[in-house]
């Protein structure tokens, strides 16, 4: 524990109520403070995940998202503000998160995950969250996380439904095990309430906190699906594909 950064009195006070969480305590908080988390896209899902992670006191957040704030982002992208329409999304997000918790170091990348930046961004994080609206980006993030053996929380939603799984490369199925082909029917624009995307993002953040602090049972080898239309939640075991071109060469 000595290698972990100390908490300042201000931090101890800020996080007081979560320090009461069983098995978490001061060591868990210091683990969060030491950690770096990469969030791919900070829209409805990833933005909410980033907000929860900032509130919890992750040491450093790397936020990757291209483009400027648009009016029709604002029903769900809770890190974006009306006064920032037409200006970079990552700037709005950085301001909001700094206002929430100035102890968190925020690094912004005004690009989406792509072939040029994926390896470098993943190399600098301890855990990654995937929340892009395109499978190409998600599958790229998955490939890079598996290659570097970094834990990845893949979080997605559609309308009133959410899905989540935590990927520990070599130990649990990766995204390519689930989706061995780029899904041909997915459309980039999708129906969304913030209440749903925020729920998925919050669950993803909890997975990240659990992984870093070493508490609870991560959602590995399982797919959580939920439908808020009738409030049904379901967890289904999922298996690695022995011939997965991305992860099958890795042993646990």
């Amino acid at each position: 524990m000595s290698h972990l950064p100390e908490l300042t009195p201000d931090e101890r006070s800020r996080y007081e109520w979560q320090l009461w969480v069983r098995d978490f305590g001061e060591e868990g908080q210091r683990r969060l403070k030491q950690a770096t988390v990469l969030v791919s896209r900070i829209g409805g899902v990833g933005g909410s995940a980033a907000m929860q992670l900032a509130a919890a006191g992750i040491g450093r957040l790397i936020l990757a998202h291209a483009g400027n704030v648009r009016l029709n982002d604002l029903n769900r992208q809770l890190l974006m503000t009306t006064d920032w329409i037409g200006k970079p999304r990552v700037e709005s997000a950085s301001r909001r998160l700094h206002d929430l918790n100035p102890h968190v170091e925020i690094e912004t990348i005004a690009e989406n995950i792509n072939d040029s930046n994926a390896a470098e961004l993943v190399s600098r994080c301890d855990v990654a969250v995937s929340a892009a609206p395109l499978f190409a980006e998600r599958l790229l993030m998955n490939r890079e996380a598996v290659r570097q053996r970094k834990p990845l929380v893949d979080s997605a939603m559609y309308e009133l439904e959410g899905r989540l799984t935590t990927i520990i490369p070599g130990r649990s199925p990766c995204l390519s095990c689930l989706y061995p082909e780029p899904p041909p029917n997915w459309k980039r624009e999708f129906p969304v309430f913030s209440a749903v995307s925020s729920a998925v993002g919050s669950l993803a953040a909890m997975e990240v906190i659990k992984l870093i602090a070493g508490i609870g049972e991560p959602l590995t080898g399982r797919l959580l699906t939920f439908d808020l239309r009738d409030m049904s939640f379901r967890t289904v075991p999922i298996a690695r594909q022995l011939d997965c071109p991305v992860c099958s060469a890795l042993s646990p």
């Binding site: 409805g44 899902v45 990833g46 892009a132 609206p133 395109l134 899904p183 995307s197």
Partner: peptide
């Protein structure tokens, strides 16, 4: 049947 989703 769960079609692939990637809403983010």
């Amino acid at each position: 049947l769960l079609p692939p989703i990637a809403g983010g």
